[in-house]
């Protein structure tokens, strides 16, 4: 049971990154369906970063992790920037642009990881695996003594805690700072925000790119924090995770703080079928559960229909400042 919960938290952290990144983007009024591809890019970048910093004899753990995160954010942010350019400046349709980003991001990642970073190569694989086990999954010493509490809550690598910290930061920024207020205003009604003097374009670009960068760390969290950098079809799994993260945004009613708990629930549902003993064919039915739950959540939140649970009003629409 502890293993299940511990695993659920680890998987949930991946959802958390994607979810918080998408919340930030959606608060600016952009529905970024490219998050699955962006998370894949994060995995690609992260693996490259880790590979570069582990070439030496005794790599510094902190450096490796930081470098991995940095490269993940750069790669993911780059694809996010492309999305931002297309949807903010060129005002293309957000759904379509997002889907193209997903298609491209997934394909690029598969190619990049297998043919550029060469994760199947013996030396590279050993370096990545070493980094993954010793740095990304490094646990706080002495947790065994705490029994089940330690295993479940404290026995995780740094990325899991980073996810929670980022979620809290984003929540605070959105709710309590002027910057967050401006961003929310843009998401609700960009015309009004513009009239008041807020730099709509600048905010949108920033929100989309930072959101993409955060989601990209999620990709890294999967490839090195959960697996050991040796999943050669990583883009398939991360795509599913990406779609569920976008769904999770609705589940959490656009609140990063709720996302912390929600992502844990989604993580648990996602891996449930491996821990429940049922006959082989029923495993397929168990795998449906996260998607079914998401649909229920979609339905319930839309039926309830409170103001607080609604998406930003201008979500999905391009902003045009009208000719005067």
């Amino acid at each position: 049971m502890e293993v299940f919960l511990s695993s659920a938290i680890q998987f949930g952290a991946i959802f958390l990154f994607g979810c918080v990144g998408e919340i930030l983007t959606e608060k600016a009024g952009h529905l970024n369906l490219g998050i699955p591809g962006i998370m894949c890019m994060g995995a690609a970048g992260g693996c490259l970063g880790v590979r570069l910093t582990t070439m030496g004899e005794s790599p510094n753990g902190v450096l490796v992790v930081l470098c991995g995160i940095l490269f993940a954010m750069i790669f993911a942010g780059a694809l996010g920037a492309v999305y931002a350019f297309l949807t903010v400046s060129l005002r293309t349709n957000q759904n379509v642009t997002g889907l193209v980003c997903t298609i491209f991001g997934a394909g690029f990642t598969s190619f990049f990881l297998n043919d550029v970073v060469c994760i199947a190569d013996v030396t590279v694989a050993s370096k990545l695996s070493f980094a993954s086990l010793n740095f990304f999954k490094a646990q706080i010493p002495g947790i065994e003594a705490l029994g089940w509490f330690g295993t479940i809550f404290l026995g995780h690598g740094p990325l899991i805690y980073l996810a929670i910290i980022i979620a809290v930061i984003v929540a605070v920024v959105l709710k309590r700072t002027k910057v967050g207020l401006n961003l929310r205003a843009i998401g609700e009604n960009p015309a009004t925000a513009d009239a008041v003097g807020i730099n709509v374009t600048g905010y949108k670009y920033t929100a989309v790119i930072i959101g993409a960068a955060i989601a990209g760390i999620g990709g890294l969290c999967y490839s090195l924090g959960y697996t050991s950098g040796n999943d050669s079809t990583v883009e398939v799994t991360i795509q599913i995770i990406g779609w569920l993260s976008i769904a999770l945004v609705i589940f959490t009613m656009w609140r990063p703080a709720v996302a912390i708990g929600g992502s844990f629930v989604f993580g648990a549902l996602y891996i449930l079928y491996s821990y429940i003993g049922v006959a082989s064919e029923f495993k397929s039915l168990l795998r449906l559960i996260p998607f079914g739950v998401t649909i229920l959540v979609l339905i319930v939140t839309s039926i309830i229909g409170h103001r607080e649970t609604q998406p930003p009003a201008s979500l999905g629409l391009s902003y045009f400042r009208e000719e005067r």
Binding site: N95, I240, W243, A247, F291, I295
Partner: peptide, 13 residues
């Protein structure tokens, strides 16, 4: 209800 995500989830189901 948001149709993009609903239809997307139906894919996996």
């Amino acid at each position: 209800t948001n149709e993009s995500l609903f239809t997307l989830m139906m894919n996996y189901i």
